[in-house]
Design a protein around this nucleic acid. Structure first.
Lengths: 200, 200
DNA sequence: TGTACATCAGTGAACGCGCGTTCACTGATGTAC
DNA sequence: TGTACATCAGTGAACGCGCGTTCACTGATGTAC
């Protein structure tokens, strides 16, 4: 009820939506679901947001920052070796844990279909987040090349970054698509893709 | 009204759903939409299917066959050279045309998120279709290796096939996710990934 | 500093719309004689 | 082969539910004096 509490409730709604939208998809996670997750009733939602679409745009904005912070933390743990950093990122990203918990995972992967069918505002935020991911991966592949003695011009580094990241996203979403029907195939896709990426 | 007409109407419904589901997502393409696309009214739908879920499973079954037939046709056009066949597949798959027309395109890419959130029946069909894709790509990468003088054991060939196919799917869905907000970035992802794959 | 009052976040009922599904009806099909 | 009748695919109205949104209400907050 206090102004401080109001801010906190607003943040709770955004966080609940960020998790729910990634796990179930935006259309399958309603106002009632997300306000309940945030510990309040649905009516109060409109004290914070003009519409569900408005919230979706804000979630798109926030959720990439969180995802990227996670990767930044992994990188920070391996300041000396790009190779070690890259392997750690792969081990985290292409894991059963990440596959089974989209609610805390990569926004690019979890929201990729929602973004395609959403308005330009949400899509612009997705784009911003994607560029953020690419920057990280450009730095990573550049470091990898330097460490192995070769060098990579910027255009080529960006190309490699796109290749690596799209394969990671693709593996994860495909692994999720068959996770219930065939855990074996799902595991294979993740581990196989991870092994193949490490080999580069 | 004749039995022949009934069969034809049924097929029309499945085809309309296969296109609509890929373009808009299963949940955003209703019974009314799809029966209208098929040239009838919504009431008649239940003469053909017990539920929308039942139709979805049948669509999952059919749509991969169609997608795979498309790839098979491309391969058949290049019987002599695996390299030429691979490049033709890439040019088709990672194209603006394919990105902009999910309704006729790869089922793996267009339905990947729907599959993850769908029941086990639909997911099992997705799995079957995915295995079909992988078979084609295993043959393709094996042929590529043979043509370039090296050889690839089956396990490694499967690993490469998974890597290539997941990158293709990932590039396409990410390109679609930013297509409206940034056609430039969307184009870059497609062409960049295609170039990188050809370089292998 | 204490009191009176306006503000406003959260509650829960209600509205309206869309969508999956059902149903009574119709008229053509196709079968039984 | 022709006629009478049962079947049943397609129509369009209706139902029920879920979901986004609105609204009257309440009670605590925080401001004005």
């Amino acid at each position: 009820v206090s102004q401080e509490q109001k801010k906190l409730n607003r943040k709770r709604i955004v966080d609940a939506a960020a998790a729910g939208f990634r796990a179930r998809g935006i259309d399958n996670f309603g106002i009632d679901d997300l306000t309940k997750s945030a510990g309040m009733t649905h009516g109060g939602f409109y004290n914070h947001f003009a519409s569900k679409d408005d919230l979706a745009v804000e979630v798109f904005r926030d959720v990439f920052d969180a995802s990227l912070a996670g990767i930044a933390a992994i990188l920070a743990a391996h300041p000396r070796s790009s190779r070690a950093a890259f392997q750690a990122v792969l081990d985290n990203y292409l894991s059963a844990l990440h596959r089974d918990h989209p609610e805390f995972g990569c926004a690019s992967a979890a929201l990729v279909s929602d973004a395609g069918r959403r308005g330009p505002d949400a899509q612009a935020e997705y784009q911003r987040g994607l560029e953020g991911y690419l920057e990280v991966f450009i730095e990573l592949v550049t470091g990898l090349a330097r460490q192995s003695g070769t060098s990579l011009d910027p255009a080529r580094a960006r190309e490699e970054a796109i290749a690596v990241f799209t394969q990671m996203v693709g593996s994860l979403v495909v692994a999720r698509a068959v996770a219930q029907a065939s855990p074996e195939l799902s595991d294979e896709i993740i581990t196989s893709s991870r092994r193949q990426l490490k080999r580069r």
